[in-house]
Computed example of a mutant assay.
Amino acid sequence: MDELIIRVLEGEASPRQQSELERWRESSGENEERFHEVAGVWRLTGEHREIRAQGPAPSARELLSGGGPSELRPSAGGLSPVREAGRWPLRVAALAAALLLGLGMGHFSARPGGMGVEFHTGAGEMTTATLADGTVVRLAPSSRLRIEQRQGVREVWLEGRAFFSVARDPSRPFIVRGSAGDATVLGTRFDVENRGDDLRLLVLEGRVAVSVPDGDVEVGAGELAEARRGSAPSVTAVSDPEAMVAWLGVFMAFESTPLGQVARELEARLGIQVEFTDPELATRTVSGWFGRDVRDEIVPIICRIAGVQCEVEGSAVRMSP
């Protein structure tokens, strides 16, 4: 079905095929969710087609089927260098990786009138949504996320808990609304719980403005904001932010995140130790998300996205230009 979706998006489908896709999308919420995932990859391959080195950029078909110009080559001593035949757009490769590594559980529904969609999870369920702007949301158990679909608006409504990796767009702030208050960001990664009168927000990267009826605060990386109706919000520094997002398990999401920060999270989450042969490599950025514990796949994909060579030996990774 992915092939048919791409044919329709590229204007290559016949009227019969277009009707077939429409019927498939309308038959279940899972089908509609898959359509938006594939459409997101297709859209980004079209927006970022430039090539920085020799070798062709992979098409949406190649990305969704796991193809493309990169390859893994074994070497002596059990090391696995990852070599780039061509560097294609970082976000496209990252989103394709997310599709290839799989999604979580959850439920999806379209809102009447086409004004938005809604995701919700039951007890013990989690799911991941990639929004139209590239923002990635990991929805915690017993939570509900409503996504507004209006031109020029980046706004969601949350009841429960979620982790956000927000695509950067200085001209359009991203707003998370809830019964206890709102969070406004330009591009960042944060964990927020908004239930009833209580709001709790932890920032891992960037800055977030929190607005509640009893006051406004700005929260930076490594800080926790807490607010309850009837009292002013408070902000405290957190010594171990990673411990506070343990509910994510092995799920990781990055949005223009420096490779040095990615390395720290690989060590904290998966016990993978990263060594940079050139300090400049730590400043390169990565965008994408990974939803399953597939360590043998995560490291090569990150290396491919960042355009670095990697040698892997056990739980140690050496990154070089």
Rank of each mutant, 00 (worst) to 15 (best):
E30Y: 02
E33L: 15
E33C: 04
F35D: 01
E37N: 10
V38K: 09
R43L: 04
L44G: 00
L44W: 11
G46F: 01
E47Y: 03
R49G: 12
E50N: 05
I51C: 12
I51K: 13
R52A: 11
G55N: 05
A57K: 13
A57L: 04
A60Q: 05
R61A: 12
R61C: 04
R61V: 13
E62A: 14
L64W: 01
L64R: 07
S65G: 09
G66V: 02
G67F: 00
R73K: 12
R73W: 02
G77V: 07
G78F: 03
S80L: 13
S80M: 10
P89C: 10
L90M: 12
A93C: 03
A93I: 12
L95E: 10
L95T: 09
A96L: 00
A97M: 06
A98C: 04
L99V: 15
L100F: 01
G102R: 01
G102H: 01
L103W: 09
G106D: 08
H107S: 15
A110F: 02
P112R: 12
G114E: 03
F119E: 13
H120V: 04
H120N: 09
G122Q: 15
M126N: 12
M126G: 10
T127M: 15
T130Q: 14
D133K: 01
D133S: 03
G134F: 06
T135N: 03
V136D: 11
R138I: 03
S142G: 07
S143V: 04
S143L: 07
L145S: 12
L145G: 12
R146M: 05
E148C: 05
E148Y: 02
Q149H: 08
Q149F: 00
Q151C: 00
R154E: 08
V156R: 10
L158P: 09
E159W: 00
E159M: 01
E159N: 14
G160S: 07
R161M: 14
R161A: 06
F164S: 12
S165I: 02
V166L: 09
R168P: 01
R172S: 11
I175P: 00
I175Q: 10
